[in-house]
Amino acid sequence: MRALLVVNPAATTTSARVRDVLIHALASEMKLEAITTEYRGHARDLGRRAAESKDIELVVALGGDGTVNEVVNGLLHNGPDLERLPGLAVVPGGSTNVFARALGLPNDAVEATGAILDALRERRERTVSLGLAAGTPGSEDEGVPSRWFTFCAGLGFDAGVVGRVEQQRERGKRSTHALYVRQVVRQFLDESNRRHGAITLERPGEDPVTDLVLSIICNTSPYTYLGNRPMYASPEASFETALDVLSLSKLSSVAAARYGTQLLTSTPERGPHGKHAVSLHDLTDFSLHSKVPLPFQMDGDHLGLRTSVTFTGVRRALRVIV
């Protein structure tokens, strides 16, 4: 088997020495080419190169969720093709590693590498769904390129938190769970992030859902992790179905405390709920429209402000080694 290993040298939880050990272990089982990313978007370019290759059978992403997202977008540049495209394996090297953990892989790069090698020997793989987001035709975001996501997207509050965290990281702060918690508090205290009725959700054949403050789109469950604690925004979401949505129509101090507590104590059976919570399951096509530009994120990557985004849930989009 010929494989391409995409290595993010800035991965927060792996050292250069550990990465060398992992490369050696993988190379002992396959014909491996390892390339270290050098710029933002490099992993996407490498994924596209692998997709266009005639002999690469597997792409291994060594890094966090951002690296995985770039590789997936490169692999699926021309759309899903289970028969032709290489499979994907993920070695977690980021601070949260939601996609890898949602697949059931250990949250340790060495253990995950061992699990992947076992899966290759036993020919174990899984076909997963993905989400696709694009600018809505006829809106001011119409020209925004489409982009795949593996586990979540968000418009509004949670995307604002992601943006604040990225700003702090650019200033040299380490990506820690305490950093995320501080930015959640600061995002909430910013009154401009607590508007009522900014977002409308539209889907074919259904009445619009209006007056929403935030929307979280999930391709799997859990939605994210706080340390080792999984957080279930949409417990029914899975890699076997299309997309789930959790939206809130109110974010007052009382409502934020209620739904924040529900998220922290959520389980695989029960997520945030109540009269201001809207939960939708297994959506294939829908769009979100905002009266004002709002922060937008995909797989934990802040993508700026958007007023309109169209989502597509694509089943059986990618082969993953597990």
Rank of each mutant, 00 (worst) to 15 (best):
I216L: 15
N228G: 11
S221Q: 04
L226I: 09
V245I: 15
Y225G: 08
T210R: 15
F239S: 01
L226H: 07
L226F: 15
L214I: 10
A233R: 09
Y232L: 07
E240S: 14
T210E: 15
A237P: 02
Y223S: 09
T220K: 00
T220S: 05
P230L: 09
T224S: 14
G227Y: 05
P230G: 07
T224P: 03
L214H: 03
S221W: 03
L212H: 02
S234P: 00
S238R: 06
V245S: 13
I217D: 08
V213I: 10
T224I: 08
T224E: 12
S221N: 03
T241P: 00
D211T: 04
D211V: 00
S234V: 13
N219S: 10
V245H: 14
I216G: 02
D244N: 15
F239L: 04
L243G: 05
N228M: 04
I217Q: 03
G227H: 07
Y223D: 02
L212K: 03
N228I: 00
F239G: 01
N228F: 05
D244K: 12
T220R: 04
P222G: 09
L226G: 05
P230E: 07
E236H: 13
R229F: 07
T241Y: 01
T241L: 11
L214S: 09
T241V: 03
T241I: 01
L226Q: 05
D244F: 11
P235A: 07
N219D: 07
T241A: 12
N228K: 10
L214V: 13
V245M: 12
Y225V: 12
I217P: 05
M231S: 05
T241N: 13
L243Q: 08
D211A: 14
L212D: 09
T220G: 01
L212E: 05
P235D: 11
T210M: 10
T224F: 14
E236M: 03
T210N: 08
T224G: 06
C218T: 13
S238T: 13
M231R: 12
P222K: 12
R229Q: 12
T220F: 00
Y225C: 12
Y223L: 06
D244A: 14
I216V: 15
R229E: 01
P222V: 11
L214R: 02
S234G: 00
S221L: 03
Y223F: 15
L226A: 12
G227V: 08
P230S: 11
E240I: 04
Y223K: 08
N228E: 14
A237Y: 02
A242T: 12
C218D: 08
E240F: 00
R229G: 00
S215M: 14
E236Y: 11
S238P: 02
S234C: 15
S221M: 01
P235E: 11
P230H: 10
A233K: 10
D211M: 03
L243K: 09
L214W: 01
L243N: 09
A242N: 15
